[in-house]
């Protein structure tokens, strides 16, 4: 594997205030175009791990680099620019509740001061199956619809990296597979994907479709799992 990793972690440790060290000695290198699952039991620290990558949390020790830049050296504007290069689907996606869905999905464009390509936006809404909900306000969406909307919002700026945190948490099996399919499509189009899930069945089902590696959080460490899944 050649080339500079998109994301690198060197001996990173983290613990919440008042708690001990939750995650320690973490090493990671995400190569461009790769597909990774991040798995581990509930409460093991998957969400925490992703928040370290987006700069929402700061490691206690160690170094995280993204797109070749040390996160600790980025200012607030640097972190903002970083987030525009990574699309994130949060476990509990939040929207601007006063704006209709279509404006929420286009929001990263507004924030990045980029023009809205209406046909592309319509295409994106259709891709996640939300065409009929363009005018719906976010509070009126179901959990699954919110997660699909979050995925659409995450990719509208064509980010190099997509981070998804349990994006299928609220979806039935069929919809889960559909969403996974979307992530695989993104990966095939060259995007780097990191998908956190505790659902091993989902990983098994997806394995034939994509050359994915599995990272497992266990005992406060992140390890590359073998082929034993």
């Amino acid at each position: 594997m050649a080339g500079q990793p998109l994301i690198e972690m060197q001996d990173v440790a983290f613990g919440y205030r008042g708690g001990g060290t939750l995650l320690g000695g973490m090493e990671l290198a995400l190569q461009p175009g790769s597909f990774h699952f991040l798995t581990g039991p509930s409460g093991s620290g998957k969400t925490t791990f992703l928040k370290l990558l987006t700069g929402e949390l700061t490691p206690s020790t160690g170094r995280i680099t993204a797109f070749g830049r040390d996160l600790a050296e980025l200012g607030r504007d640097g972190i903002a620019a970083l987030r525009r290069r990574m699309g994130v689907v949060h476990q509990d996606p939040q929207f601007l509740d006063h704006l209709p869905l279509v404006e929420n999905i286009a929001l990263p464009l507004t924030v990045a001061r980029q023009p809205v390509d209406v046909p592309a936006l319509k295409g994106l809404m259709a891709w996640v199956g939300l065409t009929g909900h363009a005018k719906t306000l976010p509070p009126a969406l179901s959990g699954g619809e919110r997660q699909r909307a979050a995925l659409a919002r995450a990719v509208i700026l064509s980010p190099d990296l997509v981070l998804a945190d349990e994006p299928t948490g609220n979806l039935d099996e069929e919809m889960s597979m559909r969403l996974m399919q979307l992530l695989v499509e993104l990966n095939r189009s060259g995007k780097t994907v990191l998908l956190a899930t505790h659902d091993l069945n989902l990983i098994r089902a997806l394995k034939p479709m994509v050359a994915a590696r599995v990272l497992r959080i266990a005992g406060g460490r992140v390890q590359l799992a073998g082929a034993d899944l």
Partner: peptide, 18 residues
Amino acid sequence: MTRLAQGQPRPGRGANLP
């Protein structure tokens, strides 16, 4: 043991604030 306050939001870095 730790250099930064744990679990805290990333502190604002004065030099980069507008």
